[in-house]
Amino acid sequence: MFERRSPLAPQLAGGGRDGADGRRSMRIGEARGWHLIQIGAHRRSGAALAAAVGRLCGCALPSSPRIVTACGAHRLYRIAADQYWIVTHDAAVTAALARAITPDVGASTALTHARVRLVIEGAAATALLARIVPIDLRSAALPVGSFAQTGVQHACVLLERSDAQRYELYVLRTYAVSTWEWILDSAMPYGYDVHVAQTEQ
């Protein structure tokens, strides 16, 4: 068997550090145990793609470019007009999607290994993110359950607000260590614990 490795394996052994006031007001870590597939429709295949997703994921394709569609073990993100991400615990679903989405239905690309999913959670999470992303984090602009594609240190990220004080960041794998170090540096004044979740939630 081939062992699967996280690029953050050495970093996650770090433990954490106290903030300026002696407390640790965040948990920062990696969520594992998920699969990501990007699917897209071409001009004539929107309905066919929606049908395939409906059949295999049990939900409609999201119409909003901001709101995450949560549906059982799956989360769906509309990342461009006709492009979607599906994140799921269930490897069987991505495999089934890859098979079902034939060229007349659309296209699929596996991206599970291309991203690392970071979780930042706690009282100082929003203040920390204001130091690393250039977007409006106020709850009217980024409500719980919404997402935004933006950049950290000029590398693209997908940022999801999964709770008022909980954010998930999908970062490019090859930038993951650099982004991780950047986040930890920014988190210094607040203090943090380092945390790994083998399966999400």
């Binding site: 490795r5 290994h113 130091r131 240190q153 090859t174 930038y175 260590v177 540096d185 920014s186």
Partner: peptide, 18 residues
């Protein structure tokens, strides 16, 4: 800001880096 030292620019690491 914090874009100094080894944070001056982001660094890309190969999956084989370690």
């Amino acid at each position: 800001g914090r874009s100094i030292g080894h944070h001056f620019r982001p660094i890309r690491r190969s999956p084989l880096h370690d």
